[in-house]
Design a protein around this nucleic acid. Sequence first.
DNA 1: CAACATAATTCTAAAATATGGAATAATATA
DNA 2: TATATTATTCCATATTTTAGAATTATGTTG
Lengths: 301, 301
Amino acid sequence: MDKFANMQAFALVGQTESFAEAARRLNLANSVVSKRIKDLEGYLGTQLLVRTTRKVTLTEAGYTYMEFVRKTLDELEEVEASLLYQTENPVGTIRISLPLSFGMQYLGAALSSYMEKYPDVNVKAYLSDRRVDLIEDGFDVALRLGALEDSSLVAKKLAHSRLVLCASPEYLQKYGRPQAPLDLREHNCLSYLNLAEGKAWPFMVDGKMIWQPISGRFASDNGDLLFQSAIEGSGLVLLPIFIVGEAVERGELEILLQDYERDDFNLYAVYQHTRHLSIKVRTLIDHLHSYFKDALTCALL
Amino acid sequence: MDKFANMQAFALVGQTESFAEAARRLNLANSVVSKRIKDLEGYLGTQLLVRTTRKVTLTEAGYTYMEFVRKTLDELEEVEASLLYQTENPVGTIRISLPLSFGMQYLGAALSSYMEKYPDVNVKAYLSDRRVDLIEDGFDVALRLGALEDSSLVAKKLAHSRLVLCASPEYLQKYGRPQAPLDLREHNCLSYLNLAEGKAWPFMVDGKMIWQPISGRFASDNGDLLFQSAIEGSGLVLLPIFIVGEAVERGELEILLQDYERDDFNLYAVYQHTRHLSIKVRTLIDHLHSYFKDALTCALL
DNA sequence: CAACATAATTCTAAAATATGGAATAATATA
DNA sequence: TATATTATTCCATATTTTAGAATTATGTTG
């Protein structure tokens, strides 16, 4: 028994005071409407309508039930419409996870322009270099830098960037300049704690990626700290170009082993694969995509 | 698509955060619950639940929808329960149509005791000798005296009474005493306007009912007025025993042609035949039935 | 870390249900 | 009284729903 269909039929019969008219409006056979009301009455154990072949009247129970049915059907319509609206016009709050340094530097502007464009969406941005569990921690999207592990999530590439090996001129003068990945064994490597890159660094050798084991006396889970440390001349760092770029331009750091650079260091938006991707997420990703493509090519490169 | 079944499944899945648990509680196969949610999402065009094989979480749209679904299902349950309650505990207002004189004389007590027994039922009693249209005029029950015309209504016999022919001793002395129905042709018959009895009176002759045409100079649609008239000696009347009884005992009227009395003059409760007779009507009829059986046999007889 | 247990989904045949249309009975209108 | 419309019932057909096995995914345990 489709209770909703029955209620709908009941509402129409009550309103039009006619089974035949209700059937016409529903594009159904009279017999169907008749049966639906009968089922409903049987289910409720109460007569809802008094009928002769010429007149249909609500019983007292029918009147009570009709009030409820009408209210419910109206609300249902309203809620469904609002859900539909929400699938077309982004509304609500979007939770996003961002890499720490990258987020601090670039996401402010990118997210402001998004929020300006979609005034009914609030954004909660959580900055962390931890690879959060989207589902577990309730994130709609995570932005991630670098290569991605396999997962059931969808990753959309937003921008290309570079992961560059750097050191200060002072350090290089003192300890020499590495000519190939293997030379890193001889150097103090400032390593990043959150990633695989903490123990070995990736390089391209003859088109293949190799992981060069590293060692060093200082490690941190904060890229900027490593960055500062490198400027002070304490060792080599492997950092995104957007962190070290300005220092390189100022001559405070030099880029090393550029020919061995891995070429798949990208910015990705990572999100759940769903049949019906929420419009909030879709618009945010589209926005970030065009934002980074148009505005930041130079900065990230 | 049974929207209610789907909503119910969705509510349970959201509550238990598990398709399997919801399926168990609904005594359904997992695949059914899965399909119901899928259908609902397809219909609404929105993802409602984010699921891995181990975790189920509401999306924002799902959360919005869940609030509505829970509220609606709760209300539905409540309304259905209240309808059920109404079928077990009479509640509401009952509209009843009563014969005028009879109602004035007997129904006060009968209805008071009913209302005392069922404090949640209000009674609206409309006194009239018109044969009202139950459906058209919105009556739950009508009490009727005498023989019934054929109709789609149900008639329950509540009590037996007598329709007696009377005249005052003075009148009989002056105009003679009828010995058979045919003799009425010679008499002034005070006729009742609302019924068939206005133009001919029924008598039993050799086990068959005959209608004896009558004529007279005074007619009314009010039995008591005819009654008063008869006491004054203005003619013959055919009235229920409960109207004339006391006057007969006092010697103010004499009963005539008692051997020709029709034997099917009953008090009936007339009501719509419905699959689910409302408890109000059922209890009222039961009450009146026992009331007239116990208390009024003598008075009506 | 491999084996295991449980979960959600998909697929398919079988069961359950809904549907339209003809027949029937009832009741207004002219 | 004849006519037209109505609500209901019945029944063959069409549609939908269901359960269960297979598949894929994901925690847990020894």
